[in-house]
Amino acid sequence: IRKQWHEDITQDLRNHLVHKLVQAIFPTPDPAALKDRRMENLVAYARKVEGDMYESANNRAEYYHLLAEKIYKIQKELEEKRRT
């Protein structure tokens, strides 16, 4: 379902936000690492998460909020795993 606010969101912005999700899960300073085949699954997962939020959000603010919440949860989980 195409929503009115979707018209304001460019593909570049969506790609940028997918990249932010990927960085939250696997922070790497090396952009070449993103071309690694093992990263493809991670990028696919991040695209799916972003797509789900894009579809479920009712406006741009909610879209950003859902993504920020997801990134926060991912970082929290990773922190907890590092501690144990």
Rank of each mutant, 00 (worst) to 15 (best):
residue 60 R to Q: 11
residue 12 D to E: 15
residue 22 V to S: 04
residue 18 V to M: 01
residue 34 L to A: 11
residue 53 M to H: 05
residue 24 A to R: 02
residue 7 E to C: 06
residue 65 H to M: 07
residue 67 L to R: 02
residue 64 Y to M: 15
residue 2 R to S: 11
residue 71 I to F: 02
residue 32 A to T: 12
residue 56 S to T: 12
residue 20 K to A: 03
residue 82 R to S: 12
residue 10 T to L: 01
residue 42 L to M: 09
residue 9 I to A: 01
residue 47 R to D: 07
residue 11 Q to I: 03
residue 19 H to F: 08
residue 50 E to T: 02
residue 33 A to T: 10
residue 12 D to V: 05
residue 77 E to R: 11
residue 13 L to Y: 06
residue 10 T to W: 00
residue 8 D to I: 00
residue 12 D to N: 03
residue 69 E to G: 07
residue 53 M to V: 09
residue 11 Q to V: 05
residue 66 L to N: 12
residue 34 L to S: 10
residue 61 A to L: 06
residue 41 N to W: 05
residue 62 E to T: 04
residue 44 A to G: 05
residue 41 N to Q: 10
residue 17 L to I: 11
residue 36 D to I: 06
residue 81 K to D: 10
residue 76 K to F: 12
residue 32 A to E: 13
residue 32 A to C: 11
residue 7 E to Y: 05
residue 8 D to C: 04
residue 58 N to V: 03
residue 46 A to R: 02
residue 35 K to I: 05
residue 28 T to R: 08
residue 70 K to L: 03
residue 64 Y to I: 09
residue 45 Y to W: 15
residue 2 R to D: 14
residue 42 L to S: 06
residue 26 F to W: 13
residue 79 E to D: 09
residue 2 R to N: 13
residue 40 E to I: 01
residue 42 L to Y: 13
residue 36 D to E: 12
residue 54 Y to L: 02
residue 73 K to R: 11
residue 49 V to S: 02
residue 45 Y to H: 07
residue 71 I to M: 11
residue 25 I to R: 03
residue 82 R to Q: 12
residue 47 R to L: 03
residue 40 E to P: 07
residue 43 V to T: 07
residue 25 I to C: 09
residue 79 E to K: 05
residue 4 Q to L: 09
residue 78 L to E: 14
residue 20 K to Y: 04
residue 80 E to M: 07
residue 33 A to M: 14
residue 79 E to P: 14
residue 1 I to G: 12
residue 79 E to M: 08
residue 70 K to S: 05
residue 27 P to I: 01
residue 6 H to K: 13
residue 17 L to V: 14
residue 8 D to Y: 04
residue 24 A to G: 02
residue 64 Y to Q: 15
residue 18 V to T: 07
residue 24 A to C: 00
residue 74 I to R: 03
residue 72 Y to Q: 14
residue 81 K to L: 06
residue 49 V to C: 11
residue 17 L to W: 15
residue 10 T to M: 04
residue 24 A to E: 03
residue 56 S to A: 13
residue 10 T to G: 06
residue 26 F to E: 15
residue 36 D to M: 05
residue 31 P to F: 13
residue 38 R to N: 10
residue 37 R to K: 09
residue 14 R to D: 00
residue 35 K to S: 13
residue 31 P to D: 12
residue 1 I to L: 06
residue 18 V to H: 00
residue 67 L to S: 03
residue 27 P to D: 10
residue 78 L to Q: 15
residue 77 E to T: 13
residue 48 K to M: 09
residue 31 P to M: 10
residue 9 I to E: 01
residue 33 A to I: 08
residue 75 Q to C: 03
residue 74 I to M: 07
residue 7 E to F: 10
residue 73 K to C: 11
residue 52 D to T: 02
residue 21 L to K: 00
residue 25 I to E: 04
residue 13 L to Q: 11
residue 46 A to C: 09
residue 58 N to Q: 07
residue 13 L to D: 15
residue 23 Q to G: 05
residue 10 T to H: 09
residue 12 D to W: 03
residue 3 K to W: 01
residue 5 W to V: 05
residue 76 K to W: 06
residue 32 A to P: 10
residue 13 L to T: 13
residue 22 V to F: 02
residue 83 R to Y: 08
residue 32 A to V: 11
residue 82 R to F: 08
